[in-house]
Protein backbone atom coordinates (compact mmCIF):
# COMPACT_ATOMS: atom_id res chain seq x y z
CA UNK A 1 0.00 0.00 0.00
CA UNK A 2 3.04 2.22 -0.45
CA UNK A 3 1.54 4.09 -3.37
CA UNK A 4 2.18 7.80 -3.85
CA UNK A 5 -0.28 10.12 -2.17
CA UNK A 6 -2.40 11.70 -4.87
CA UNK A 7 -3.51 15.32 -4.67
CA UNK A 8 -6.16 16.41 -7.13
CA UNK A 9 -6.39 20.15 -7.78
CA UNK A 10 -9.51 21.61 -9.36
CA UNK A 11 -8.58 25.14 -10.42
CA UNK A 12 -8.68 27.00 -13.71
CA UNK A 13 -6.02 29.68 -13.04
CA UNK A 14 -2.79 28.17 -14.35
CA UNK A 15 -0.56 30.86 -12.86
CA UNK A 16 -2.08 30.42 -9.43
CA UNK A 17 -1.61 26.66 -9.53
CA UNK A 18 1.95 26.45 -10.92
CA UNK A 19 3.81 27.24 -7.65
CA UNK A 20 1.38 25.13 -5.61
CA UNK A 21 1.97 22.15 -7.88
CA UNK A 22 5.71 22.75 -7.60
CA UNK A 23 5.64 22.76 -3.77
CA UNK A 24 3.43 19.68 -3.54
CA UNK A 25 5.58 17.69 -5.96
CA UNK A 26 8.74 18.71 -4.10
CA UNK A 27 7.06 17.41 -0.94
CA UNK A 28 6.57 14.03 -2.63
CA UNK A 29 2.93 14.19 -3.64
CA UNK A 30 1.62 13.04 -7.00
CA UNK A 31 -0.31 16.03 -8.31
CA UNK A 32 -2.98 16.15 -10.95
CA UNK A 33 -4.59 19.40 -12.05
CA UNK A 34 -7.99 19.56 -13.70
CA UNK A 35 -8.52 23.04 -15.07
CA UNK A 36 -11.34 22.44 -17.54
CA UNK A 37 -14.55 20.93 -16.28
CA UNK A 38 -17.81 20.81 -18.20
CA UNK A 39 -19.97 20.62 -15.09
CA UNK A 40 -20.02 19.38 -11.52
CA UNK A 41 -21.04 15.87 -12.62
CA UNK A 42 -17.96 15.57 -14.84
CA UNK A 43 -15.87 16.61 -11.83
CA UNK A 44 -17.44 13.75 -9.88
CA UNK A 45 -16.61 11.29 -12.65
CA UNK A 46 -13.00 12.51 -12.90
CA UNK A 47 -12.54 12.25 -9.14
CA UNK A 48 -13.92 8.72 -9.31
CA UNK A 49 -11.45 7.79 -12.06
CA UNK A 50 -8.43 9.38 -10.42
CA UNK A 51 -9.16 8.15 -6.88
CA UNK A 52 -7.20 10.97 -5.19
CA UNK A 53 -6.30 10.96 -1.50
CA UNK A 54 -7.23 14.61 -1.13
CA UNK A 55 -8.92 17.30 -3.24
CA UNK A 56 -8.00 20.98 -3.37
CA UNK A 57 -10.70 23.00 -5.12
CA UNK A 58 -11.05 26.66 -5.98
CA UNK A 59 -14.39 28.09 -4.88
CA UNK A 60 -14.66 30.49 -7.77
CA UNK A 61 -13.84 28.21 -10.66
CA UNK A 62 -16.39 27.08 -13.24
CA UNK A 63 -18.41 25.10 -12.30
CA UNK A 64 -18.70 26.70 -8.89
CA UNK A 65 -16.75 24.99 -6.11
CA UNK A 66 -19.89 24.55 -4.03
CA UNK A 67 -21.53 22.54 -6.82
CA UNK A 68 -18.45 20.32 -7.06
CA UNK A 69 -18.39 19.87 -3.27
CA UNK A 70 -22.04 18.82 -3.33
CA UNK A 71 -21.58 16.18 -6.04
CA UNK A 72 -18.48 14.73 -4.37
CA UNK A 73 -20.04 14.58 -0.91
CA UNK A 74 -23.24 13.04 -2.27
CA UNK A 75 -21.30 10.13 -3.83
CA UNK A 76 -21.15 7.16 -1.46
CA UNK A 77 -17.64 6.17 -2.55
CA UNK A 78 -16.13 9.65 -2.73
CA UNK A 79 -17.55 11.40 0.30
CA UNK A 80 -14.70 10.34 2.59
CA UNK A 81 -12.03 11.96 0.42
CA UNK A 82 -10.81 15.08 2.25
CA UNK A 83 -11.94 18.22 0.44
CA UNK A 84 -10.22 21.58 0.88
CA UNK A 85 -11.38 24.86 -0.58
CA UNK A 86 -8.81 27.33 -1.84
CA UNK A 87 -10.24 30.78 -1.62
CA UNK A 88 -9.49 34.45 -1.34
CA UNK A 89 -13.03 35.09 -0.12
CA UNK A 90 -13.20 35.06 3.63
CA UNK A 91 -16.92 35.73 4.04
CA UNK A 92 -18.27 34.03 7.15
CA UNK A 93 -21.58 32.88 5.58
CA UNK A 94 -19.65 31.19 2.77
CA UNK A 95 -17.33 29.43 5.21
CA UNK A 96 -20.32 28.20 7.22
CA UNK A 97 -22.06 27.04 4.04
CA UNK A 98 -18.90 25.16 3.04
CA UNK A 99 -18.51 23.44 6.41
CA UNK A 100 -22.15 22.39 6.36
CA UNK A 101 -21.59 21.07 2.82
CA UNK A 102 -18.82 18.81 4.07
CA UNK A 103 -15.62 20.75 3.36
CA UNK A 104 -12.74 19.74 5.64
CA UNK A 105 -10.77 22.96 5.66
CA UNK A 106 -9.73 26.10 3.79
CA UNK A 107 -6.48 27.30 2.32
CA UNK A 108 -6.56 31.05 2.01
CA UNK A 109 -5.02 32.81 -1.01
CA UNK A 110 -2.28 33.87 -1.36
CA UNK A 111 -1.12 30.50 -0.23
CA UNK A 112 1.68 30.07 2.24
CA UNK A 113 3.73 27.00 1.36
CA UNK A 114 4.51 25.83 4.88
CA UNK A 115 0.95 26.25 6.14
CA UNK A 116 -0.46 24.48 3.09
CA UNK A 117 1.90 21.49 3.45
CA UNK A 118 1.29 21.23 7.21
CA UNK A 119 -2.47 21.35 6.72
CA UNK A 120 -2.46 18.69 3.99
CA UNK A 121 -0.13 16.45 5.96
CA UNK A 122 -2.28 16.71 9.08
CA UNK A 123 -5.53 15.98 7.23
CA UNK A 124 -3.98 13.04 5.37
CA UNK A 125 -2.64 11.51 8.57
CA UNK A 126 -6.10 11.64 10.12
CA UNK A 127 -7.56 10.21 6.92
CA UNK A 128 -5.00 7.40 6.87
CA UNK A 129 -5.91 6.43 10.45
CA UNK A 130 -9.60 6.55 9.57
CA UNK A 131 -9.22 4.44 6.42
CA UNK A 132 -6.98 2.01 8.29
CA UNK A 133 -9.74 1.49 10.83
CA UNK A 134 -12.49 1.25 8.23
CA UNK A 135 -10.88 -0.73 5.44
CA UNK A 136 -8.22 -3.03 6.91
CA UNK A 137 -8.72 -6.43 8.47
CA UNK A 138 -7.11 -6.22 11.93
CA UNK A 139 -5.71 -9.76 11.91
CA UNK A 140 -4.16 -10.02 8.47
CA UNK A 141 -3.71 -6.29 7.72
CA UNK A 142 -5.10 -6.76 4.24
CA UNK A 143 -8.22 -5.03 2.93
CA UNK A 144 -11.53 -6.12 4.37
CA UNK A 145 -14.94 -6.86 2.89
CA UNK A 146 -16.08 -3.24 3.08
CA UNK A 147 -13.12 -2.07 0.98
CA UNK A 148 -13.44 -4.98 -1.43
CA UNK A 149 -17.07 -4.21 -2.21
CA UNK A 150 -16.31 -0.54 -2.81
CA UNK A 151 -13.21 -1.28 -4.88
CA UNK A 152 -14.81 -3.98 -7.03
CA UNK A 153 -17.51 -1.56 -8.11
CA UNK A 154 -14.88 1.08 -8.95
CA UNK A 155 -12.66 -1.38 -10.82
CA UNK A 156 -15.55 -2.66 -12.94
CA UNK A 157 -16.39 0.89 -13.99
CA UNK A 158 -12.75 1.62 -14.86
CA UNK A 159 -12.33 -1.63 -16.80
CA UNK A 160 -15.57 -1.01 -18.68
CA UNK A 161 -14.36 2.42 -19.68
CA UNK A 162 -11.00 1.13 -20.93
CA UNK A 163 -12.38 -2.05 -22.51
CA UNK A 164 -10.19 -4.29 -20.31
CA UNK A 165 -10.95 -7.63 -18.69
CA UNK A 166 -10.91 -8.22 -14.93
CA UNK A 167 -10.76 -11.54 -13.11
CA UNK A 168 -12.32 -12.11 -9.72
CA UNK A 169 -11.01 -15.02 -7.64
CA UNK A 170 -12.71 -16.29 -4.51
CA UNK A 171 -10.40 -18.41 -2.36
CA UNK A 172 -11.25 -20.55 0.64
CA UNK A 173 -8.72 -22.39 2.81
CA UNK A 174 -9.36 -26.14 2.72
CA UNK A 175 -10.19 -27.92 5.97
CA UNK A 176 -9.60 -24.77 7.96
CA UNK A 177 -12.08 -25.83 10.64
CA UNK A 178 -10.05 -28.94 11.34
CA UNK A 179 -6.87 -26.81 11.74
CA UNK A 180 -8.72 -24.72 14.33
CA UNK A 181 -10.16 -27.80 16.02
CA UNK A 182 -6.84 -29.67 16.06
CA UNK A 183 -4.35 -26.93 16.88
CA UNK A 184 -6.49 -24.15 18.30
CA UNK A 185 -7.63 -20.75 17.02
CA UNK A 186 -4.25 -19.08 17.56
CA UNK A 187 -2.77 -21.54 15.11
CA UNK A 188 -5.68 -20.88 12.75
CA UNK A 189 -4.90 -17.15 12.96
CA UNK A 190 -1.27 -17.87 12.11
CA UNK A 191 -2.35 -19.88 9.07
CA UNK A 192 -4.51 -16.96 7.89
CA UNK A 193 -1.64 -14.51 8.35
CA UNK A 194 0.83 -16.81 6.59
CA UNK A 195 -1.58 -17.35 3.71
CA UNK A 196 -2.26 -13.65 3.14
CA UNK A 197 1.45 -12.79 3.28
CA UNK A 198 2.22 -15.55 0.80
CA UNK A 199 -0.44 -14.34 -1.63
CA UNK A 200 0.57 -10.67 -1.24
CA UNK A 201 4.19 -11.55 -1.99
CA UNK A 202 3.32 -13.50 -5.11
CA UNK A 203 0.83 -11.30 -6.94
CA UNK A 204 1.24 -8.12 -8.97
CA UNK A 205 1.16 -4.86 -7.05
CA UNK A 206 -1.96 -3.95 -9.02
CA UNK A 207 -3.86 -7.04 -7.85
CA UNK A 208 -6.01 -6.49 -4.78
CA UNK A 209 -6.37 -9.09 -2.04
CA UNK A 210 -9.17 -8.75 0.52
CA UNK A 211 -10.54 -10.84 3.34
CA UNK A 212 -14.20 -11.59 2.75
CA UNK A 213 -14.69 -13.20 6.14
CA UNK A 214 -13.48 -16.26 8.08
CA UNK A 215 -11.13 -18.20 5.81
CA UNK A 216 -12.54 -16.71 2.58
CA UNK A 217 -10.65 -14.21 0.44
CA UNK A 218 -11.17 -12.33 -2.80
CA UNK A 219 -8.51 -11.41 -5.29
CA UNK A 220 -9.21 -8.74 -7.92
CA UNK A 221 -6.85 -9.24 -10.84
CA UNK A 222 -6.79 -6.05 -12.87
CA UNK A 223 -6.45 -6.12 -16.65
CA UNK A 224 -6.45 -9.88 -16.92
CA UNK A 225 -7.96 -12.54 -19.13
CA UNK A 226 -9.47 -15.60 -17.57
CA UNK A 227 -7.06 -18.25 -18.90
CA UNK A 228 -3.98 -16.37 -17.71
CA UNK A 229 -5.58 -15.62 -14.36
CA UNK A 230 -6.45 -19.28 -13.79
CA UNK A 231 -2.85 -20.30 -14.57
CA UNK A 232 -1.60 -17.71 -12.10
CA UNK A 233 -3.90 -18.98 -9.33
CA UNK A 234 -2.95 -22.61 -10.07
CA UNK A 235 0.72 -21.63 -9.82
CA UNK A 236 0.01 -19.92 -6.49
CA UNK A 237 -1.71 -23.06 -5.23
CA UNK A 238 1.18 -25.32 -6.29
CA UNK A 239 3.74 -22.99 -4.76
CA UNK A 240 1.77 -22.82 -1.51
CA UNK A 241 1.67 -26.62 -1.33
CA UNK A 242 5.38 -26.95 -2.13
CA UNK A 243 6.88 -24.17 -0.07
CA UNK A 244 4.65 -22.88 2.70
CA UNK A 245 4.62 -24.41 6.17
CA UNK A 246 3.31 -23.07 9.45
CA UNK A 247 5.36 -24.27 12.42
CA UNK A 248 3.19 -24.82 15.48
CA UNK A 249 4.36 -26.62 18.64
CA UNK A 250 7.10 -28.53 16.80
CA UNK A 251 4.75 -29.54 14.05
CA UNK A 252 4.71 -28.43 10.42
CA UNK A 253 1.26 -27.63 9.12
CA UNK A 254 0.58 -27.55 5.41
CA UNK A 255 -2.58 -26.25 3.90
CA UNK A 256 -4.23 -25.62 0.55
CA UNK A 257 -7.03 -23.54 -0.87
CA UNK A 258 -9.82 -23.96 -3.36
CA UNK A 259 -10.71 -21.17 -5.73
CA UNK A 260 -13.63 -20.08 -7.89
CA UNK A 261 -13.19 -17.65 -10.72
CA UNK A 262 -15.42 -15.20 -12.58
CA UNK A 263 -14.53 -12.67 -15.23
CA UNK A 264 -15.64 -9.25 -16.34
CA UNK A 265 -17.08 -8.84 -18.94
CA UNK A 266 -17.40 -12.56 -19.80
CA UNK A 267 -19.75 -13.19 -16.88
CA UNK A 268 -21.49 -9.83 -16.86
CA UNK A 269 -20.95 -6.44 -15.27
CA UNK A 270 -22.84 -6.65 -12.00
CA UNK A 271 -20.48 -6.84 -8.98
CA UNK A 272 -22.81 -9.11 -6.99
CA UNK A 273 -23.32 -11.30 -10.07
CA UNK A 274 -19.53 -11.72 -10.43
CA UNK A 275 -19.21 -12.54 -6.72
CA UNK A 276 -21.97 -15.17 -7.03
CA UNK A 277 -20.34 -16.79 -10.07
CA UNK A 278 -16.93 -16.92 -8.37
CA UNK A 279 -18.70 -18.41 -5.34
CA UNK A 280 -20.29 -21.03 -7.60
CA UNK A 281 -16.83 -21.87 -9.00
CA UNK A 282 -15.51 -22.24 -5.46
CA UNK A 283 -18.37 -24.58 -4.59
CA UNK A 284 -17.53 -26.65 -7.67
CA UNK A 285 -13.83 -26.78 -6.70
CA UNK A 286 -14.78 -28.05 -3.24
CA UNK A 287 -17.13 -30.64 -4.75
CA UNK A 288 -14.41 -31.90 -7.09
CA UNK A 289 -12.01 -32.62 -4.24
CA UNK A 290 -10.53 -29.24 -3.11
CA UNK A 291 -7.09 -27.72 -3.82
CA UNK A 292 -8.14 -26.71 -7.32
CA UNK A 293 -9.38 -23.77 -9.35
CA UNK A 294 -12.73 -23.78 -11.17
CA UNK A 295 -14.56 -21.24 -13.26
CA UNK A 296 -18.06 -20.56 -12.02
CA UNK A 297 -21.13 -20.72 -14.18
CA UNK A 298 -24.15 -18.46 -13.72
CA UNK A 299 -26.57 -21.33 -13.18
CA UNK A 300 -24.34 -23.50 -10.98
Amino acid sequence: MDTPVKVLILEDDHYFIAPIKYHLEKAGYEVQVLDVLENAESAQELVFQNAPNIILCDIQMRPNGFEILKTIKSHSQLRLIPFIFMTGVESLPERIRAYLGGVDDFIIKPINRDEMLAKISSILKRQYDLEHAIYLDPLTQIYNRRFFQKELMRQIKLHRRHGDGLTLVMMDLDHFKSINDTYGHSCGDQVLITFTRFIQNNIRTTDILSRWGGEEFFLIMERSEIEGAIKTVETLLQKLQDEVRVRWNDQEITFTFSAGVSHFPTHGEDPQGLIDIADAGLYKAKELGRARVEVGTPDA
Binding site: D13, Y15, F16, A18, P19, I20, G88, K109, P110, I111, N112
Partner: peptide
Protein backbone atom coordinates in the same frame (compact mmCIF):
# COMPACT_ATOMS: atom_id res chain seq x y z
CA UNK B 1 -6.81 42.11 -9.84
CA UNK B 2 -8.48 39.17 -8.13
CA UNK B 3 -6.28 36.60 -9.88
CA UNK B 4 -3.10 38.55 -9.19
CA UNK B 5 -4.12 38.92 -5.54
CA UNK B 6 -4.30 35.13 -5.33
CA UNK B 7 -1.24 34.24 -7.38
CA UNK B 8 1.42 36.89 -6.69
CA UNK B 9 2.33 35.71 -3.21
CA UNK B 10 2.80 32.17 -4.48
CA UNK B 11 5.81 33.42 -6.45
Amino acid sequence: GHNMKGSGGGY
